[in-house]
Design a protein around this nucleic acid. Sequence first.
DNA 1: TATTTACCCAGTAAATCACTTGGTAATTAG
DNA 2: CTAATTACCAAGTGATTTACTGGGTAAATA
Lengths: 155, 155
Amino acid sequence: MRLSTKGRYAVTAMLDLALNGKNGPVTLAEISENQGISLSYLEQLFAALRNKELVRGVRGPGGGYYLGKSADDISIANIICAVDEWVEFTRCGGRQNCSGGARCLTHTLWDDLSSEIFNFLANISLGDLVRRNLNKKEDEESSLSVVANADSQAA
Amino acid sequence: MRLSTKGRYAVTAMLDLALNGKNGPVTLAEISENQGISLSYLEQLFAALRNKELVRGVRGPGGGYYLGKSADDISIANIICAVDEWVEFTRCGGRQNCSGGARCLTHTLWDDLSSEIFNFLANISLGDLVRRNLNKKEDEESSLSVVANADSQAA
DNA sequence: TATTTACCCAGTAAATCACTTGGTAATTAG
DNA sequence: CTAATTACCAAGTGATTTACTGGGTAAATA
């Protein structure tokens, strides 16, 4: 698993798309404006996302991008793997020169940990994040006029 | 959170240290040999780990590295943060130009997800991984002479 | 004293990041 | 039909990171 800033850009952009794409497609120009990501870099990211059919583009005026499938069917792991190209870390592949002996022990341990992290991210969907955001909004609305705690998030 | 190959090298090396350091220090040369990581690169990584007091070096013949504290007190997040330098992703910091409006929504969403991933890795210790490995060894010993399933992990 | 280790620093080819520039193709509005 | 708007595509680029080589010095042991 690889989780770099590139993957973060992709996740952030997809979140933007999920939140703003309820009624009609969202242009890359909008996402670029919203998230402060350069248009061409977004194009690169969305080319990868399109290849994995996580988004669907519509050309012409009024065009833009839709999610390729339901937000509940797109996991964070899906997004990151689309743009970040899963790299196999251990060169031994499990059964090469270092298999059997104590040599490869940490390799398999890392592989276990790695797939655990992957499963963790695979179990969080875009839909989850959107719903989480809606809940937060409800919380804020039900406890309005409480603006003083803007500083209490530094911890 | 940033999870690159560099962090993986560090985690793998620390795992090696935790497994082989039961009786006496482990030299970087051994870890280099075991894990196929160049000696000088290990030195760089261990300089960072030493700064965070995750390892303790002993010079001279018979020297090497000890864990800086109990394996149970070293989390995977500790290790990765030591070598990979936590980078704040959202430039807005939560209350800059894009605060309030819908603009920063995905930023805070990402921050939530990010800290969730961090907590996940913070709750896995080196000790956990070592014990996981011991359990696996016991399993293998209790079900010996079953070697045929070496291919069944391709999926 | 010689060896072994950690420790330190400068440099480097290759890759990656995030971006710019300059297009072409499809679709819609006028 | 024309012009505008969007996705789509490709080449290049400075800055940074990666993983490494090579050159040391400092401390500890045999």
